[in-house]
């Protein structure tokens, strides 16, 4: 933790706080809603990127972890007897954090089968897990079952969503740019070689799942406290696929790519609303064209600032 960190972090937090006020006062609710969804999508895609993009473990159950986080946090602030004491910014923050931890534990459980499975087979297991979570919630009367859970305090503001998005980005980025990150990347590249170079592959697969699902749980908690209402259908298989699209489109292992992917997948359908019923034909078409043009995702394995640096050094080489 150095001076430079605070020199950047304090203005960013202040700017977010100011923007929060500005959005609430001057921008219409629809646009604000899209911006909030973007923030939540960013947390989801960045966190999934650690498992899918860096460690190369294909997970299709991210919505399941999000659901765990959303329901645990929402239960703490509504159903739980101590409910009222949670109805403050601090209380909601604690609830969301608990949701993240619960999702992390779920991630540990799902990480275990990943030790034996890889590729398509792991994808099926994680898909199954996501569905199990959804069905279990569907059958718990205490949290409303299929009717959903209403009356959640709407306390996750623009500020909180984007502060968490920044924390997610920072934590994941620092993990990737460390020995642990290199260990994860080596899993993606060649598991046998990784093991032969002293990497405990089992340990790092589980760690990747735990960290990734923790942040998915956080995203879920923020989502619940933004919507004020959750129901199991918000966490269907479609949601998992959406997050995978964000990661693949942005670039495997690229945190900034995930952010761009999340923004495109969230915002583009909104811009296509004028197409009415053809919207969901044109949107996938655009995705297909994007992937054909950039098969490695928009940024590939690189971060966005690395692309610019690369171009600069090329120019130097030419001159």
């Amino acid at each position: 933790m150095n001076k430079r960190f605070f020199l950047i972090a304090i203005p960013v937090v202040a700017a977010l706080y100011g923007l929060d006020y500005f959005l609430n006062e001057y921008i219409n609710e629809y646009v604000v809603r899209v911006i909030m969804n973007c923030g939540i999508a960013c947390i989801l895609s960045m966190s999934l990127n650690l498992v899918n993009g860096c460690a190369g473990q294909f997970s299709l159950g991210h919505a399941g972890f999000m659901a765990v986080g959303a329901y645990v946090a929402a239960t703490l602030t509504t159903v739980f007897p101590a409910g009222p004491s949670f109805q403050s910014h601090l209380g909601v923050g604690m609830a969301i954090l608990s949701g993240g931890i619960a999702a992390g534990l779920a991630g540990y459980l799902v990480g275990l089968p990943s030790l034996r499975l890889r590729g398509d087979y792991l994808a099926i297991v994680t898909l199954g897990f996501g569905e199990i979570i959804r069905i279990v919630i569907l059958n718990i009367e205490a949290v409303g079952g299929p009717r959903g859970l209403p009356g959640i305090p709407r306390l996750s503001s623009f500020f909180w969503i984007y502060v968490w998005a920044a924390i997610t980005g920072l934590v994941l980025f620092r993990i990737i740019r460390s020995s642990v990150g290199r260990a994860l990347l080596s899993l993606r590249e060649d598991e046998i070689a990784a093991e032969s170079m002293g990497i405990n592959t089992a340990k790092y697969k589980v760690q990747a799942f735990v960290i990734s699902s923790f942040f998915a749980g956080i995203a879920g908690g923020l989502f619940a406290h933004y919507q004020g209402f959750v129901d199991p259908s918000s966490f269907s298989f479609n949601r998992s696929v959406e997050v995978v699209i964000m990661v693949v489109m942005g670039g495997m292992g690229s945190i900034s790519g995930s952010v761009i992917g999340a923004i495109i997948v969230t915002v583009l359908p909104e811009f296509l609303r004028f197409l009415d019923k053809f919207r969901m034909v044109v949107f996938p078409l655009i995705l297909i064209i994007l992937m054909l043009l950039r098969p490695m995702g928009l940024l590939g394995h690189k971060e966005i600032w690395q692309l610019f640096r690369f171009k600069r050094s090329l120019k130097k080489a030419v001159a």
Binding site: S179, S186, D190, G198
Partner: peptide, 25 residues
């Protein structure tokens, strides 16, 4: 330590990262 008959480098990673991974333990 070993090498492999059919090279098994971490192909998409940099030359430096390939070596750094060995220090991870």
């Amino acid at each position: 330590a070993r090498t492999f008959q059919n090279i098994r480098l971490f192909g998409e990673l940099s030359v430096l990262d390939n070596v750094l991974i060995s220090y991870h333990m």
